[in-house]
Design a protein around this nucleic acid. Structure first.
Lengths: 244, 244
DNA sequence: ATCTTCTTTGCGGGATCCCGCAAGATCCCT
DNA sequence: AGGGATCTTGCGGGATCCCGCAAAGAAGAT
């Protein structure tokens, strides 16, 4: 069995190496320090399993996993991350192909838990999601204050700094509808729940800040969204064109 | 010599332990997994040196260092962090007491570099700042597009979601001045530099997004600012009080 | 004291944002 | 087909934001 380790932190990489040889004796290890290299290495080998960090320079674990799974949906991937941000959880579960084996464990988990998860995913083809992450998933799925995909998209547009008008244009709905959505988003994020009156805040900004503090948005998700936005802006020839 | 290790990641903590016993033979090690515990332990011992991670749950490395230095400005502290975000660099250099020995090295640095830095700081009482971080410091100090402290404060207020009016109140300047400052901030962040016209963005939001992407603001700095804001709101009895 | 330069502040106005209200539109259930 | 719940859209208006303009102040140089 071949296992590809993609992790930028040398200390963690060494740790993973140890755990893997202990857990899957006789496995062949390949290592990469970021997603770009990892992707290239993955292409060179037929069937393999992958352990990948989520935060990496150049190319995120999620991005790498997406292209990897697009080419070979059968690959088993273990995500190994520091954080259980809702933004990450959303990002991962958005790209998992049907029936693919994958795992998501936190770096704070014990070595045993990691070893067990590796065996389950790579040998048994099961899915193993860390307890803590499951709870985030739940919260984001069934809580009353949860977010639709549409709402989430608009929240991202908001965070990117688009005007209402442009969001409407991009998502193909009317200006007023955008504003309705924003209203719901404000509600769900609890923009109004503040001790000192409510005319204290600029609502759209406050919403994004709260989303950030709740780890619903993070730098990674924004970076990606920013790239998508740039692509869309380039593709759709804008009429207006700058007042200054 | 006593060294306190404050680091939430068990793998990194073990690594630090190894490096320390190799570098400073015979030193006594104490460990804590977060800033709160670390602070308590630091209080129990007379003179000690500290190695501390910047990102930790509950209490940041910066927060811990600040209270520690307030009580005993002579303590030597080594900051050991994953990132060279301008937000962190600013945060650290804001709290260093005069003449204190400290270091700031990245986790991506080699073991030798870390060992060398530890010796310089703990034995020689020197200051060792990682090359990469120095460059961030420089950039934030002399570049034309750099930020005054005032501007930075207002940028943070902006990111927290305050209205212009409240920022004015909080910082003790007129509404118009706040707006002037915002204008400068927009300029420096390059809010207008976009291919597709400039009436595309909501300026205040866009500014904060760009600041985030540039790592000028990050989740940590916002969390802290949020706490300070809450304190200020509680302390200054607000007149208005909610329209809803 | 005078001039220069930079900053602060007020005023005004166009653009945007936030949202209540009400008229359709859509969908589901019976 | 009818009724009800939800969603979308337009209109209107008050609040806020962004910024040009110019007067008033502050700091420094000659």
């Amino acid at each position: 069995m071949t296992v590809l380790i993609v992790e930028d932190d040398a200390v963690h990489r060494a740790f993973l190496r140890d755990v893997l040889v202990g857990t899957l004796p006789g496995c062949r290890l390949i290592e990469a320090a970021d997603g770009v290299v990892g992707e290239a290495l993955a292409r060179e080998h037929e069937s393999m399993n992958v352990v990948v960090d989520l935060q990496m320079p150049r190319r995120t674990g999620v991005e790498m996993a997406r292209t990897l799974w697009r080419e070979r949906p059968g690959t088993a991937i273990m995500f190994w991350s520091n954080y259980a941000d809702e933004a990450y959880v959303r990002g991962v579960s958005r790209i998992v192909p049907e029936g693919a084996a994958y795992g998501y464990v936190l770096k704070s988990a014990s070595e045993e838990r990691l070893a067990l998860a590796l065996k389950s995913v790579f040998l048994e083809g099961q899915c193993v999601i860390d307890r803590e992450i499951r709870s985030v998933q739940q919260k984001s799925a069934d809580r009353s204050g949860s977010f639709t995909d549409v709402e989430y998209e608009i929240l991202v547009d908001l965070a990117l700094g688009l005007t209402d008008r442009l969001i409407a244009e991009r998502r193909g709905i009317s200006l007023r509808s955008v504003q309705n959505r924003l209203g719901q988003i404000y509600d769900k994020l609890g923009v109004y729940e503040t001790e000192a009156g409510s005319d204290v805040f600029n609502l759209r900004m406050r919403a994004v800040t709260l989303a950030g503090l709740r780890k619903l948005l993070n730098r990674n998700s924004l970076e990606q969204a920013e790239a998508e936005l740039a692509a869309w802006l380039a593709a759709s020839p804008r009429a207006g064109g700058g007042r200054r």
